[in-house]
Design a protein around this nucleic acid. Structure first.
Lengths: 120, 120
DNA sequence: CGGGATCCGACTAGATACTG
DNA sequence: CAGTATCTAGTCGGATCCCG
């Protein structure tokens, strides 16, 4: 197994160890809405209230939490405008943009799966 | 947003609705070990005890549960040899194999991320 | 507007013991 | 060997209230 040799040295991320890049990726974007958030931000910079509208079935708390983690992980940039009322814009970092191809594949694959499943 | 038009009709999967293919994909392989299980099975058919060795930090219960779900979702095939002691082999279905490109990308991306992160 | 702090119920996953 | 059953601890996410 080639990838086991390539990953012989354990990868560390936020105090946790991972044997495989897949686990790292899932730890970063496997959260319930993280991938979707990145997907939306890939298309346009959004304010917090915009994200709230897009994820209307998600609480502010969860949205904030997920965004904070994405920010900590360097995938999302948070820009605060020091004004009243506050204005905060979220956008992808360069690193965040690199995951876009995966998101595209996931989107296509999931759609195909759902269609095939509905036929059967 | 083009993909919103393409996914205007909600996708249904196991009694849940998804707006986007990404969410479907994550529901199927976003579990803590599911993607890794698929990744290992993509390389060789494995017996349950083989998987236990690979995922030594996972309980039998969880491993079984994840495998059952993957089987229910049509991604993994479970072959039982009716003999004593029992022998059960797990392998990917054709549908399960179609997700391999995503797993490869995820593996590469995660590795790169971990390396870049360790530099910084 | 964009959060943070706290409380609490629901679900998840681990430990352990048992089985065909 | 390959599970299942039960119980419990821990985690997650929702609701609510407060703040700059």
């Amino acid at each position: 197994m080639q990838q086991n040799q390539a990953t012989a040295e354990l990868m560390t991320l936020r105090d946790r160890e991972y044997k495989c890049g897949i686990d790292v990726t899932l730890a970063l974007v496997g959260g319930k809405w993280k991938a979707s958030i990145l997907w939306h931000l890939a298309q346009e910079t959004m304010r917090f209230s915009d994200l709230q509208r897009q994820f209307s079935d998600t609480t502010r708390k969860m949205l904030t939490q997920q965004l904070r983690e994405l920010e900590t992980d360097g995938l999302v940039h948070r820009k605060v405008y020091p004004q009243v009322p506050p204005k905060v814009e979220y956008s992808l970092t360069d690193q965040g943009r690199t995951i876009f191809p995966i998101l595209e594949l996931m989107c296509d694959w999931g759609r195909n799966y759902a269609q095939a499943g509905n036929q059967a």
